[in-house]
Amino acid sequence: MSQRFNIPKFKLPALVARIGVHLPQWPHAMTLTAGLNAAAKMNLLPMDSLELLEGRSFLVEVLDTGGRACFTYHAGLFRPLFSAPLTPDLSFRANLSAFMQLLARQEDPDTLFFNRELSIEGDTELGLIVKNMLDAVEWPQLPKLPVFSN
């Protein structure tokens, strides 16, 4: 029996974001860049697309957590930026559930964007490069876990 886990649309209470914006933001950037670098090392991200990201700045903001991750791609690595540029080349803003749905491939960026659940601002050409790069990722298949019932 194959069960697919669906991530529901949700929004965390406003208190979470009010607290989250006051917490250090660098751990978010460190974690995100570590994951992106791992994906690049596993050849999940196309090298020709990565080269087009050289020197560009990115911001990922999770609205309902108050979390922000700023990073760049330089000399073959994603690197955290410890202070956000005034105007990043490309920024993505959404609630946690939208990012989770995107990562799980439950929703695509176009649907989230047109449903106003994902905001993308900045360089349009760069945005298309990133979107196409993410669409091309072939996630490795994880082994199926046994389903236990009572």
Results as ranks from 00 to 15, higher is better:
2 S>E: 13
6 N>W: 08
8 P>L: 09
9 K>L: 09
10 F>R: 08
12 L>A: 04
16 V>D: 04
18 R>H: 05
21 V>Q: 10
22 H>V: 02
24 P>V: 01
26 W>E: 14
32 L>R: 06
34 A>R: 14
35 G>V: 04
36 L>G: 09
36 L>E: 09
38 A>H: 15
39 A>H: 11
40 A>S: 14
51 E>F: 07
53 L>Y: 00
55 G>E: 05
56 R>Q: 13
56 R>N: 10
57 S>Y: 04
62 V>N: 13
67 G>Y: 02
71 F>G: 12
75 A>I: 00
77 L>Q: 03
79 R>T: 02
83 S>Q: 14
84 A>T: 07
86 L>M: 10
87 T>P: 07
88 P>D: 04
89 D>A: 06
90 L>I: 08
92 F>L: 14
92 F>S: 07
93 R>C: 12
93 R>L: 11
93 R>I: 09
94 A>G: 03
94 A>P: 06
94 A>L: 02
95 N>M: 07
96 L>F: 01
98 A>N: 04
103 L>V: 14
105 R>F: 07
109 P>R: 02
110 D>K: 06
111 T>A: 08
112 L>S: 00
113 F>A: 01
114 F>E: 04
117 E>S: 11
118 L>H: 02
120 I>C: 13
120 I>H: 09
122 G>H: 04
127 G>F: 13
130 V>E: 08
132 N>W: 04
133 M>E: 05
135 D>W: 07
137 V>L: 04
144 K>C: 07
146 P>Q: 13
146 P>F: 06
146 P>C: 06
146 P>R: 12
147 V>C: 11
148 F>A: 05
149 S>L: 12
149 S>W: 11
149 S>F: 09
